[in-house]
Write a protein that binds this DNA or RNA. Structure first.
Length: 717
RNA sequence: GCACCCUUAGCUCAGUUGGCUAGAGCGUACGCUUCACACGCGUAAGGCCAUAGGUUCGAACCCUAUAGGGUGCACCA
């Protein structure tokens, strides 16, 4: 027996050694497995893509969970003999990364608005590359057995080309348009967003009743009302029956006399306020729709930075957040304030990143028509071509797909994939232009310039399943698409999962994956969300250093059901550290008692008792295999834990002591083979969960013709 | 407002298609250095499975209602 078993298991001196053993073996690469004969060339394939990691920081506990679950799946499938590919990748993560970088700039006293775009891009690229090296070493530390030789980055030229082709295809199929539409605009970040990037926040604010000629209008935002020249009411509202659609009324308003026009529209809720409102089409989606329906003028009141334009008269140039009180005071002096409701509760749309109030703006942006894509996806989901774990995510997805809005895919940031298009200077029309050929606007003949915007990062990551496998003609795409499992965070089910299904289906005609496994959040030990400001962020590397990667992995997976969040406490990880050590000591006992005894694969001289124990283990492993097949890793892990400690160690091992001391030769032989057999099978079954310690113990077993444990056969049926 | 989820031991959570005495980890109490392991061993305490009805031979599990907690979506100025 190796002398190291006389001391407790030491992860620090083991893990790096074992990982490089795996890497050198080439077994992460399915082609290599076939080449050296551990996998049959015609074996069934299994493919899972690692959600491309945001290359803007370092790994957090959530990544630890992703790497653990996905590695468990991968190792299990590989041991089952499948040609198993787990493809790693990195995401440039457009806006997310730019925000992180802007914070860094802020600390240095700089802002992105003073850096030439090309220079900024270069800076962020350097930043990303530095981070990604860091991230990759952390992923290795978690024990991830992904195929590094196939690693992809969302900015790889081949990926970008695929994204461009999809953009052009959408255009050719009439699913892409550039429109002057109202978009959600963050004045701080100075970019537009899709509807998913908006966070609703309930606020209690004042609600103002203002005199508008013969009417009283209600508003929570008097500072936007300078240009309001349309007054809208419901056509069926009897209170205002005397006013006709299109009727002009002269009245006194904030900065002097104006002529207002009466509009009748059914969008008005007669119950709300006074049943009359004025509209600000440039800065409100509902107002915009009304203006579109009636062909009304739209005027910009607030600029992109949130400051009032000249139309605001004396208030021009001031930031809207500062002038509300001043404007209300002016209105009050003019006698236009009727009353103020102090406790008006409503929902304000804010930037999910910085919490700044969204100021809608009318802008020309690229939109994808989502309905046709969503309908096809919905059909596949209902047919169970994509299966959700946990199940209820299917309903949530169907609800979202059934009510989908068009997707604004352009962002006014430099960090991202540039949109390959030309924009007409004169009329604003846009043209998809992959080959940089267009020089004149086909509509008005005006000069065109390059589109300076970039794609929403989700537009590229939604194409990840086929793009990363080399669509359309690489062998990997043919072998591995459509993939088997998509394992990711429940949080990004709309952002990413649903869009992957839609775009995958649209571009390749096939759903991109058969099963979606969604995990929940990793919370701190008290069940609170981790955040830098609370100071409760758990760094995975600290935990692997303190307890060992195997213990950390067990702590992340046992008791963690899909879709629900997990409270991760050090106590729990400590428990699994002890378990890993227990396994170490079990091995020490077995090795001591079976010194110089080789494991016999097809041993047939069992005692009746040992035969029963062997069958008991087989039953357990069958059970565990069922759990693995059904993604119940939390159960499989717990069952193996329980068996190893409370059955094998506490009972089987204890009882064996007597036999090994007092039994006949046959009984001793049978018992030794049993101990070796159980240990071997247990190591195999536990390997996906705790790969390092099992591989290390395995290396000390006396088994003729054994390979690395990572490619041994899974012991259950 | 609509949808979805949750409520089980002091804490964090399992409990698969309804079926033995409802489980685990941590924690707690008491006792053990027993020749694999004190990162250990043994023993014990601790639960009206949110509440009220219903279905059933049988319910933590299925149905209905209620209460509390959470999440997502949609919004009216």
């Amino acid at each position: 027996m190796d002398g190291k078993f006389l001391k407790p298991y030491d992860p620090a001196s083991t893990e790096d050694k074992i990982y490089s053993l795996w890497e050198k073996s080439g077994f992460f690469d399915p082609d290599q497995c076939v080449k050296v004969g551990v996998t049959a060339p015609d074996a069934e394939t299994f493919c899972m893509l690692m959600p491309p990691t945001n290359a803007n920081g370092s790994l957090h506990a959530g990544h630890g969970l992703v790497m653990t679950i996905e590695d468990i799946i991968t190792r299990y499938q590989r041991m089952r003999g499948k040609r198993t590919l787990w493809l790693p990748g990195l995401d440039h993560a457009g806006f997310e990364t730019q925000v992180v970088y802007e914070k860094k700039l802020e600390k240095e006293g700089r802002t992105r608005f003073e850096i030439p775009p090309a220079d900024l891009y270069k800076e962020i690229l350097d930043f990303t590359l530095t981070n990604s090296a860091n991230i990759k070493s952390q992923v290795r530390k978690m024990g991830a057995s992904c195929d590094w030789s196939r690693e992809k980055f969302t900015l790889d030229p081949a990926i970008v080309r695929t994204v461009y082709n999809t953009f052009a295809k959408l255009s050719a199929d009439g699913l892409l348009y550039r429109g002057k539409r109202i978009v959600s605009w963050c004045p701080k970040h100075q970019t537009s967003f899709s509807d998913l990037e908006i966070k609703d926040e309930e606020r209690t604010e004042k609600f103002y009743y203002l005199k508008y000629g013969p009417f009283t209008i209600g508003t929570s935002r008097p500072e936007t009302k300078f240009g309001d020249k349309y007054v809208v009411m419901h056509p069926a509202d009897k209170r205002y029956a005397q006013y006709k659609d299109g009727q002009k009324i002269d009245l006194e308003w904030i900065n002097g006399p104006i002529t207002a026009t009466v509009i009748k529209d059914e969008a008005i809720d007669m119950e709300f306020g006074t049943g009359v409102m004025t509209i600000t089409p440039w800065h409100d989606p509902v107002d915009f729709d009304i203006a579109e329906r009636h062909g009304l003028d739209k005027e910009q009141i607030i600029d992109e930075k949130g400051k009032l334009l000249p139309i605001a008269g004396e208030f021009a140039g001031q930031h809207i957040s500062k002038v509300r009180a001043l404007i209300v005071e002016k209105l009050r002096v003019k006698g236009l304030v009727e009353k103020i409701d102090e406790n008006y509760k409503h929902v304000v749309r804010t930037c999910y990143k910085c919490g700044t109030t969204i100021e809608p703006q009318v802008k020309s942006q690229w939109f994808v028509k989502m309905k046709p894509l969503a309908e096809k996806a919905l059909e596949k989901i209902k047919n169970k071509e994509v299966v959700y774990i946990p199940e209820h995510y299917e309903k949530i997805t169907e609800h979202w797909l059934g009510n989908i809005m068009d997707w604004n895919i352009s962002r006014q940031i430099v960090w991202g994939i540039p949109i390959p298009a030309k924009i007409c200077e004169k009329c604003g029309e846009g043209y998809v232009d992959l080959d940089n050929k267009i020089t004149k606007c086909a509509k008005c003949g005006g000069e065109v310039r390059k589109d300076n915007d970039t794609f929403d990062t989700w537009f590229s990551s939604s194409q990840w399943p086929f793009a990363s496998l080399g669509f359309p003609d690489s062998p990997d795409f043919k072998n591995y698409y459509s993939t088997d499992v998509m394992e990711t965070a429940g949080e990004i089910i709309f952002f990413w999962v649903s869009r992957m299904i839609m775009l995958g289906l649209y571009v390749t005609g096939e759903v991109p994956f058969a099963t979606v496994y969604l995990h929940g959040l990793v919370l701190d030990g008290k069940g609170q969300k981790m955040s830098k400001s609370k100071g409760n962020v758990i760094n995975p590397l600290d935990l692997t250093a303190k307890f060992g990667t195997d213990a950390f992995r067990m702590g992340l997976v046992v008791g963690n059901t899909p879709g629900t969040s997990l409270a991760l406490s050090e106590d729990k990880i400590t428990a699994y550290k002890k378990f890993v050590n227990k396994l170490w000591n079990i091995s020490r006992f077995v090795f001591t008692e079976t010194e110089n005894t080789a494991f016999v694969e097809d041993f047939d001289s069992w005692t009746a008792d040992d035969r029963k124990l062997e069958e008991e283990l087989s039953r357990l492993l069958t059970d565990v295999t069922t759990d693995m097949e059904n993604f119940r890793f939390y159960m499989a892990g717990e069952k193996l834990y329980h068996y190893a400690w409370h059955r094998f160690a506490d009972v089987i091992l204890e009882e064996s002591k007597k036999t090994l001391k007092e039994g006949t030769e046959d009984e001793k032989n049978s018992k030794k083979q049993l101990l070796l057999l159980i240990l071997a099978k247990l190591l195999k079954a536990l390997h996906p969960f705790i790969p390092f310690v099992t591989e290390e113990i395995w290396s000390c077993m006396l088994i003729p013709g054994k390979r690395l444990l990572i490619v041994e056969k899974w012991p259950g049926k």
